[in-house]
Structures are given as C-alpha cells and as structure tokens.
Simulated scan of single mutants.
Amino acid sequence: MKQNLTTIGFDADDTLWQNEEFFRLTQDHFAALLSDYADPDHLSERLLQAERKNLGQYGFGIKGFVLSMIETAIEVTDKTVPATVISQIIEAGQEMLRHPIHLLPHAEETVGKLAERFKLVLITKGDLLHQEQKLAQSGLGEMFDAVEIVSDKTPQTYIRAFMRHGDGPDRAMMVGNSMKSDVVPAIDAGGWGVHVPARYEWEMEKADAPEGHPRFRVLKDLGALPSLLDALGL
C-alpha cells in the first residue's frame, strides 16, 4: 500500500537564505589580515583543520568559526599575532552575526505554498540563539509547524524529528543544499532526500550523491519543488 508524503523538512542556511557567502567573504578578510604570515591557500587549509578539530567542542556556526580563526592566527604567527588583528577578527564575526537575512530565490513562495498541503519542519544545525534570530528575521517562522535546531544531522536525527513532528521518515522528505547533512542521512533514515545545490559548498559538507536511489532527487532551485511533488504523485 502506497504511503503518501505528509511531512517536509527544510534546511535553513544556504537552502532558505544565504549563509556560506558571508563565511567566504570573512575568510577573504582573514587572509588579508594575515597576508604577511601565510599565503591564502595555506591559511585556508590551516583554518579548515582547526574547524574540523573544533567541531566537537564548538559545534557549527559563526562563534566556532571565529574561535577557529583566532586559533589559526595564533598558530601561523607562532603566537606573535598583534592584538589589533585579533580585534579585527572578532569584529568580523560580530558583523556576520549582525548581517541581515537574504532569502534565496523562491524560498518564501515555495514554503508558503507547501505549508498549505504538508506539515513543515525546519531542521538546521548551528548556534541555537543565532538560528532562532535568523528564522525570526526571515519572516518564514509562522509557516513552519516545528523547528529543530540540532548539533548534527544523522539518520537518527531525522528518524526522531519525523516521528515527533510527522508520521515517520518513510512519509517524509528532507530538502537542503548539503549532500552530507540533508540528503544522505535523510535517505538512510528511510525518507526522501532532495538536493538543492547552493552557489558555495563548505568543504566539510561534501559527500557522494546516492545516485540511482529511488528516493533521491536534485533540483536547480526551490521553485521546482512543488512541481516535483506533483510529478511524483506525493
């Protein structure tokens, strides 16, 4: 017996609104601040190493990114980084936290349209306070039936979320820009995984696509999601 889709999960950063672009701009500024100590490619590698190492302690988000930049600056300068540079790194992070939300194309219309037919759940990683602030600024909050701000996204994350807010993962779909966090674990949980690639992809969010899986789809943008659901008879 066919089980119809009842619940759709949406990622937030770089799915509904821009995010990674601001990280890239800040990283460029970071490279300029430390240009006397390291070339941009080497600095980028060192920063990525620091982020990877610190994820377990700091989690995802701007605050952990800033702490990793400071740690990298201290290391590449052999602990001689000027206090003025540390101050500018902190200011750059504060500017990121203050940056207004820029919705991605079709986000508002698509979420609003699907809210009439499905139970919608926002499932996002990151700092609790900042993610709540961004959702409030986005104007999309009222369209979601539930919000889950999580430390990581695993198959168990989606099983729990879709059991709590829906009819289980087999009757749910996750939509997001990250193959590693949004698509693959949602499919492994038993749901649908829809990839909507963003302009920029964080190195730590890369993963192989589950090509050939019957519940995997790729869309060029969120505007194509309602038509996909109609075509699949969901």
Rank of each mutant, 00 (worst) to 15 (best):
V194I: 09
K180I: 03
V175D: 00
E205F: 00
G176I: 10
D182A: 06
S44A: 12
V111P: 11
I74D: 00
V175Y: 03
K206M: 09
V184F: 03
A189I: 06
M173H: 08
F30I: 00
L33W: 00
V183G: 05
H102W: 05
D145I: 05
F118G: 12
L128A: 14
S68D: 05
D188E: 12
G93Y: 03
Q18I: 09
M1K: 07
K63H: 03
L232V: 04
Y37Q: 14
D182I: 10
G56D: 10
K220H: 13
P105H: 15
P185T: 07
Q137E: 13
S151F: 14
I101P: 02
H195L: 13
P226T: 13
A189E: 06
L5T: 08
P226C: 08
A172D: 10
L103G: 10
T26Q: 13
G193K: 05
K53T: 03
H106Q: 14
A31D: 10
K220I: 10
E203P: 03
G126H: 12
D127A: 04
F162L: 06
F118S: 14
E109K: 15
I101M: 02
M174P: 00
L140R: 04
Q156R: 01
L47V: 02
I70Q: 01
D152Q: 12
D39C: 13
A209V: 12
A161N: 09
L225S: 09
P100D: 11
T6S: 13
A161Q: 03
V196Q: 02
V196D: 10
P155A: 05
A146W: 07
M96I: 08
G193F: 06
A115Q: 14
I90P: 07
D39N: 13
L97I: 13
S151V: 14
R46N: 03
G223D: 08
N54T: 04
S138H: 04
E201Q: 08
Q88V: 01
E21I: 10
K180N: 03
H42P: 02
A231M: 13
R217V: 11
K79P: 01
D170N: 04
F23C: 07
K125L: 09
H195Q: 01
L228W: 05
L135Y: 02
N19V: 05
K134W: 04
F10R: 08
D230V: 14
M204F: 11
A161W: 08
